[in-house]
Amino acid sequence: MIREYAPAKVNLYLHVTGRRPDGYHLLDSLAAFGPAADVLEAAPADDLSLTLDGPFGESLAAEPDNLVLRAARALADAAARRPGAALRLTKNLPVASGIGGGSADAAAALRALNRLWNCRLDAARLALLAQPLGADIPVCVESRPRLMQGVGEIMRPAPHLPDVGLLLVNPRVPLATPAVFRARQGDFTPAARLPEAWPDAEAMAAHLRGLRNDLEAPARALCPLISDVISTLAALPGCLLARMSGSGATCFALFPTAETARQAAALLPAEWWSFGGGLYEGGAPSLHPPAGGV
């Protein structure tokens, strides 16, 4: 059996920079990973199957064709082989929550089956395979911090990120990405200018405070609980920055250390989903499970 971790993708900022003639929006965003993750396991089998479990597994049970299965078939087609594998997805991340859970799961499936089937495709080839499946999947293949542009297909090296604590919080309310984009109003935002590195968590948070998530305002209008979550995070001891990730409704807060982020999680309302730890910067998720477990 092969196991792959699928870390949550967090948009530390997200600028909507334009719109293509086909209606897709152009973005500029710094994506980072961790500390929570789904887990995908793959074992040899004659046919392709997917079993769901975990706290959010039921949320996907009604889907007729999970993104994990579509990724598996895409890899099988590229490798000119029959798609046979028994897959198990432990869904620890909330669904439709702005942290790329489905994309991370599909990327984990590509990595796991690439090993199980001995396809020997490198990360660049897997990312290319992932592009037609979803804009966020390519960046999740390596699960390393990246500057994302275009519709997500353009990936550039990210600034070196310092040690920093990250707390993820979701009010357990799903929020559809297309609805958030439709609700967005106003002008477009220029791409950000970032340094090569930040010396510490405080400097990183100070720079990010000058940027924003252009989808936060429309998401707040559609889901007022997001405002409550961000206000609560901003008031936590040691919080350096509180913001929404992606199209929501998951929000995040940055802290000086992973331990202060874990301690802050204990102060949140019990009915909210939360996970605190450190930013995940190691890549190769199968070799380095996220700090704090899953």
Rank of each mutant, 00 (worst) to 15 (best):
A127T: 04
A127H: 02
A127E: 15
L128I: 01
L129E: 03
L129S: 03
L129R: 04
L129C: 04
A130K: 01
A130E: 10
A130G: 11
A130L: 10
Q131W: 09
Q131K: 15
Q131H: 09
Q131F: 02
Q131P: 01
P132M: 06
P132W: 12
P132K: 13
P132G: 10
L133M: 09
L133C: 08
L133W: 11
L133A: 09
L133R: 14
G134T: 06
G134K: 02
G134R: 02
A135K: 07
A135I: 06
A135T: 11
A135N: 10
D136K: 05
D136F: 02
D136T: 08
I137H: 09
I137T: 04
I137G: 04
I137N: 06
I137E: 07
I137C: 05
P138A: 10
P138N: 08
P138G: 12
P138F: 14
P138V: 04
V139W: 07
V139M: 15
V139E: 01
V141F: 10
V141Y: 10
V141R: 14
V141M: 14
V141H: 13
E142T: 15
E142D: 14
E142F: 01
S143G: 10
S143E: 04
S143R: 13
S143L: 07
R144T: 13
R144C: 07
R144S: 08
R144A: 08
R144W: 01
R144D: 02
P145F: 10
R146K: 14
R146P: 00
R146Q: 14
R146Y: 06
R146D: 00
L147E: 04
L147T: 02
L147F: 02
L147D: 03
M148H: 00
M148R: 00
M148N: 00
M148A: 15
M148W: 00
Q149W: 00
Q149S: 14
Q149P: 00
Q149F: 00
G150A: 09
G150K: 00
G150H: 01
G150T: 04
G150L: 00
G150P: 05
V151F: 02
V151T: 15
V151S: 13
V151H: 13
G152Y: 13
G152A: 05
G152N: 04
G152H: 03
E153M: 02
E153A: 01
I154T: 14
I154N: 02
I154C: 05
I154A: 13
I154W: 00
I154E: 14
M155G: 14
M155Q: 15
M155N: 09
M155C: 13
M155S: 12
P157W: 05
P157Y: 04
P157M: 10
P157S: 06
P157D: 08
P157F: 03
A158R: 12
A158W: 07
P159T: 13
P159A: 07
H160L: 14
L161Q: 10
L161H: 11
L161A: 10
P162Y: 11
P162V: 09
P162M: 08
P162G: 01
P162C: 06
D163F: 05
D163L: 07
D163G: 15
D163P: 13
D163E: 15
D163C: 06
D163Q: 14
D163T: 13
D163V: 08
D163Y: 02
V164D: 07
V164P: 03
G165A: 06
G165P: 07
L166C: 14
L166H: 05
L166N: 12
L167N: 08
L168S: 11
L168A: 11
V169F: 12
N170Q: 03
N170D: 09
N170I: 04
P171Q: 08
P171T: 00
